[in-house]
Simulated scan of single mutants.
Amino acid sequence: MTDNSTSIELEDGRRIGYAEFGDPAGKPCLFVHGYASSRWMAGWALPADALARSAVRIIAVDRPHYGLSSPHPDAGFLQWAADGSALAEHLGLRRVSVIGVSMGAGPALALTVQRPDLVSGTTILSGMPPIDAHERWTPASRGDALYWWLARHAPRVLQKLCEFSSSMLARAADGEADTLITRMERALPVPDRQAFRSLLDDDARRVAFVSDTREASRQGGSSTAGDLQQYLRPWGFEPANVRSAVRLWHGIDDPKVPVESARRWADRLPHCEARYVPGGHFAPFLHVEDILREL
């Protein structure tokens, strides 16, 4: 797969990285990746042939501190929305759709709230909802539950753990692709393992996954630790402020974001069409053709 990545400089001197996939003349869509990922997620999660059939142009953006994007001193969702808006202006885009994956949900909806003149519609896949200050957040995955507990009670320990995890992933991404993919599969519950395997069913997507892992860990573990801490803080806007149409796809057996939380979140979004499908955190990507057609 050709590396079509680049970056632009923002007014404050930071840079924002992105890559394009799909039909260059197609309908533009900003793709906002999730936790421990990068712009390259779009290269393995969205099949090239499906993008071509749907005539969709994906602009996949590195969130702050991931890949080619600089850290952001404020790191809030509304601040990221200003970056996304600047990128759209740089590319001459007047109307775009937005896809937010997992922890990309907050930034995607922030852009939707701030720029209703730009965003024509928003799709959230396995989205992370707002966490209230006193909410007992307990995902089914024990590993995830530990990371969230550390984010609340021991942020310095979390930082060290994320740095270690990032260094291990970077080392694995520089090794054999099959070894990395097998290692990732073993860490997944059965429904997600099967979906993950089907998503990496050709060489191009496997190459993109390795690139995604490498870029996700390019700047160390501060990005992943920051993601968890950001979701424990107020978003800067309420779900009720999202006045544009939102399509939400979520797996009913998602071990990372319990479907009950997704249902409560969907009820708070004024114009939300929610679809709950069999499977785990990767389940929505098994319905890519439908998702792209809705764009």
Results as ranks from 00 to 15, higher is better:
residue 79 Q to L: 07
residue 94 R to V: 09
residue 135 E to T: 12
residue 197 R to Q: 15
residue 219 Q to E: 07
residue 263 R to C: 08
residue 281 H to C: 06
residue 197 R to W: 08
residue 153 H to Q: 12
residue 213 T to G: 12
residue 285 F to D: 01
residue 99 I to Y: 07
residue 246 V to W: 01
residue 162 C to K: 05
residue 204 A to P: 08
residue 252 I to S: 10
residue 211 S to V: 00
residue 154 A to K: 13
residue 9 E to C: 08
residue 291 I to Y: 02
residue 111 L to S: 04
residue 195 A to M: 09
residue 69 S to N: 13
residue 223 S to M: 01
residue 201 D to H: 12
residue 235 W to I: 06
residue 64 P to F: 07
residue 61 V to L: 14
residue 150 L to I: 03
residue 20 E to H: 04
residue 159 Q to G: 01
residue 60 A to D: 01
residue 227 D to Y: 01
residue 8 I to Q: 09
residue 41 M to L: 12
residue 20 E to I: 01
residue 185 E to N: 11
residue 127 G to M: 05
residue 205 R to M: 10
residue 149 W to N: 11
residue 108 A to E: 02
residue 95 R to K: 15
residue 127 G to T: 09
residue 92 G to M: 10
residue 15 R to G: 01
residue 75 A to S: 13
residue 87 L to F: 08
residue 142 R to G: 01
residue 189 P to Y: 04
residue 234 P to R: 09
residue 78 L to Q: 03
residue 266 A to F: 05
residue 165 S to H: 07
residue 224 T to D: 12
residue 190 V to W: 12
residue 85 S to K: 09
residue 15 R to Q: 14
residue 253 D to N: 12
residue 42 A to G: 11
residue 140 A to R: 14
residue 142 R to I: 13
residue 102 S to L: 02
residue 81 A to C: 13
residue 186 R to P: 00
residue 201 D to S: 14
residue 221 G to I: 03
residue 264 R to A: 14
residue 189 P to Q: 09
residue 38 S to C: 08
residue 3 D to P: 01
residue 172 A to I: 04
residue 48 A to N: 07
residue 14 R to I: 06
residue 54 S to K: 06
residue 37 S to F: 03
residue 254 D to H: 04
residue 123 T to D: 02
residue 247 R to Y: 03
residue 233 R to G: 01
residue 238 E to K: 13
residue 93 L to C: 11
residue 20 E to M: 11
residue 158 L to K: 00
residue 44 W to H: 13
residue 251 G to I: 04
residue 257 V to F: 05
residue 101 V to T: 08
residue 159 Q to K: 13
residue 88 A to H: 02
residue 109 L to R: 00
residue 27 K to F: 11
residue 251 G to N: 03
residue 3 D to K: 09
residue 255 P to H: 07
residue 234 P to K: 08
residue 67 G to Y: 00
residue 57 R to Q: 11
residue 144 D to I: 10
residue 108 A to T: 05
residue 262 A to E: 03
residue 133 A to D: 14
residue 22 G to S: 11
residue 276 Y to I: 12
residue 188 L to R: 14
residue 100 G to Y: 00
